[in-house]
Design a protein around this nucleic acid. Structure first.
Length: 595
RNA sequence: GGCCCUAUAGUUCAAUGGAUAGAACGCGGGUUUCCUAAACCUGAAAUCCAGGUUCGAUUCCUGGUGGGGCUACCA
């Protein structure tokens, strides 16, 4: 539609003013609601060519367009804006066209698709997932679907930070205070079970440090020399040396954590194609660093530590290997990146990681390039903002966190009580009802998080933030269930709306509003993939649902006596339902049949 | 100190350099013998400050101010 107009205006300029229109000068946008029309041509830039006032230029072009393009029926001019109205009949034809497209909104991958690796989630194995991880997982998972829908080959990956001093703390605490307890013996979820020992370690350690301080030891020294800290260090050394008992304990506790994570991932509905473990990749990282050192890309200090000098890129010196030869965070990320490139030969690699690590990822890409890995130009840090509580930043150690599992079940509880109050699920079994409560609760949570521009920090108020009315996930789901209900009734009445005639139809304004949005969908998916923005999809779904609800409120569908018009409305409803379902799917949100 | 992100109704969020800054929650007023009222209609309510570029700036640039982050031989 827009392309048609684009061509028309170029033609108009050629005929009226005898000039070729540069592409950059032509601005076409959707007409704002408060004005009549569908598409708007901004004529200010064209006055340079016409050498006439904006109003006159607009009128001349408007006359030309209505005379020469069938689909353009009317135009009006306000200030320097030429508002063009596409004829209702054209919109009707448009609906017939796009509703026949299967997989509407998806771009087929083509022969040589762009390969994108997306890393998200990236948990530590010493504590359960919290609200910050939820934002991460939802963004990553949604991005993977959006990029896939736009025709790319997508590999979803995760890196599990499964080694290091933090894991050793949990291990020490369990060994000393655990008394052989297991998640099974305590009926606790594995990740929470292990997380409790991490917290316990921290508490006991603080007590020990305080005792030392009371005896006159300096604070720093007290922290470093408390028996528990020494035990954790010792544990790390043993682990790196491959001590059998330690490695066995490590395996056991990690496996508990993974069982717990799996439950949370499943509850959130996120998945991965390939999971990497830091314990598998850090060694290659060390090799890469040593190799790069040999090739002269890095510098070794007197104490034996290895650094990269990035001052030429306006960054700093960055440590890549400790003086004792052990790996740091950066080391293993270098290794992971190389392994992934060897595995997939990606064109792009998207890291979904919070903005607190902006510096880290700048260094990572530059370091790889410096070492000669040209593909590192395809690395992209998808940097999202922090989730804060009304009291401020979340702090695991002080218990100021919103636990992921708790939050999910609270959402389901709220959905359950609201749904039961409304009482619309008669005829469903308890299991079916529970599944719907879960779908609605999750939709509220996911939509709340995904509708926000990813790079902005967001505040989450446990008591007030999540709504089920208005601009919310459940609102969109509700619109979907209304549509399903109408289509089901049509089906039961034996109405076959798929063959309806189209030529004589003149849709009303509400119908046109919906068709316009439906018509935008494929371009929107492409745009969302280009900008890596699930928020665009979320806001679109909301707009579409709202627009459809207005139509639904003002007009009857099944009660329409003119069967061509009735069938047209069913077609409109059906495509709206399909697009909402697809849009929600791109966000990782399920669409229930009833609610 | 240096670097990065951010600032829009009471609150949570929108707005490729374009028209009268758009929603939701909350607050006020309405709509149900009719396909699901988790809906629809309607009222009040906002661009941090000062310059600059432009026919035109919430948007771009500069300088302030407020908020957040990074600047570890932590991850």
């Amino acid at each position: 539609m827009e392309n048609l107009l684009r061509k028309g205006v170029r033609e108009a300029v050629r005929v009226l003013y005898g000039a070729e229109l540069e592409e950059g000068l032509l601005q076409i946008q959707k007409t704002r609601k408060e004005f009549a029309g569908d598409l708007t041509i901004v004529v200010f830039p064209l006055t340079r060519i016409s050498r006439k006032s904006p109003e006159l230029t607009a009128m001349e072009i408007g006359e030309f367009l209505t005379a020469n393009i069938d689909a353009v029926s009317v135009y009006n001019v306000i200030k320097g804006f030429l508002n063009v109205t596409v004829s209702p009949e054209e919109w009707a034809r448009r609906l017939f066209q796009i509703s026949e497209v299967s997989d509407y909104g998806f771009t087929a991958p083509g022969d040589n698709p762009v390969t994108i690796v997306i890393e998200y989630s990236s948990p530590n194995t010493n504590k359960p997932l919290h609200l910050g991880h939820i934002r991460n997982n939802l963004l990553g998972f949604s991005l993977s679907r959006i990029c896939g829908a736009a025709g790319n080959r997508v590999i979803r990956t995760n890196i599990v930070n499964d080694r290091g001093i933090h894991i050793c703390k949990s291990m020490v605490a369990w060994k000393l205070f655990g008394d052989g307890a297991t998640p099974a013996s305590t009926a606790k979820k594995g990740d929470h079970f292990v997380g409790d020992y991490y917290v316990l370690f921290d508490r006991k350690h603080r007590e020990q440090a305080a005792a030392l301080e009371a005896a006159g030891v300096k604070p720093d020294e007290a922290r470093d020399t408390a028996p528990l800290m020494l035990a954790a260090r010792d544990m790390l050394l043993k682990w790196e040396a491959g001590d059998e008992e330690t490695v066995q304990l490590w395996h056991m506790m990690n496996s508990w954590v993974y069982e717990g994570f799996d439950v949370t991932y499943k509850a959130l509905g996120v998945e991965f194609d390939k999971i990497y473990y830091e314990s598998d990749t850090y060694k290659l990282g060390k090799e890469i660093v040593l190799q790069a050192l040999k090739e002269g890309h890095l510098v070794r200090k007197d104490d034996g530590s290895v650094w990269i000098d990035l001052t030429a890129d306006k960054l700093d010196h960055k440590l890549l290997l400790r003086s004792d030869g052990t790996a740091v965070y950066m080391t293993q990320d270098l290794g992971t990146a190389v392994i992934r490139y060897n595995d997939y030969h990606f064109d792009r690699h998207i890291y979904v990681v919070g903005n607190e690590q902006n510096y880290h990822f700048q260094v990572l890409a530059l370091a790889l390039l410096r070492m000669g890995f040209k593909w590192a130009g395809g690395l992209h840090h998808f940097s999202y903002g922090m989730v804060e509580l009304p009291e401020g930043k979340m702090k695991s150690r002080e218990g100021m966190v919103v636990d992921a599992d708790d939050l999910i079940s609270e959402m389901t509880d709220t959905a359950r009580s609201m749904s039961q109050e409304l009482g619309k699920l008669g005829g469903y079994s308890e299991d079916e009802k529970e599944n719907i409560y879960r779908q609605i609760g999750l939709a509220a949570l996911k939509y709340f998080i995904l509708k926000v521009d990813p790079k902005k920090n967001m505040t989450f108020n446990p008591l007030e933030s999540i709504d089920f009315n208005g601009n919310t996930g459940p609102f969109i789901q509700y619109t979907y269930t209304r549509i399903r209900s109408v289509l089901k009734k049509a089906d039961e009445a034996g109405i076959h709306w798929g063959h309806g005639k189209q030529d004589t139809l003149t849709p009303n304004q509400k119908e046109i509003n919906v068709i316009k949005l439906l018509n935008d969908f494929p371009a929107l998916v492409t745009e969302a993939a280009g900008e890596l923005s699930p928020a665009l999809i979320a806001n679109y779904c909301y707009d579409l649902a709202r627009e459809f609800n207005q139509f639904y409120h003002d007009y009857t569908i099944l009660g329409e006596a003119d069967t061509d018009l009735r069938d047209f409305r069913l077609r409109l409803s059906d495509l709206t339902g399909r697009v909402i379902e697809t849009g929600l799917w791109l966000l990782g949100i399920e669409a229930p049949e009833r609610m």
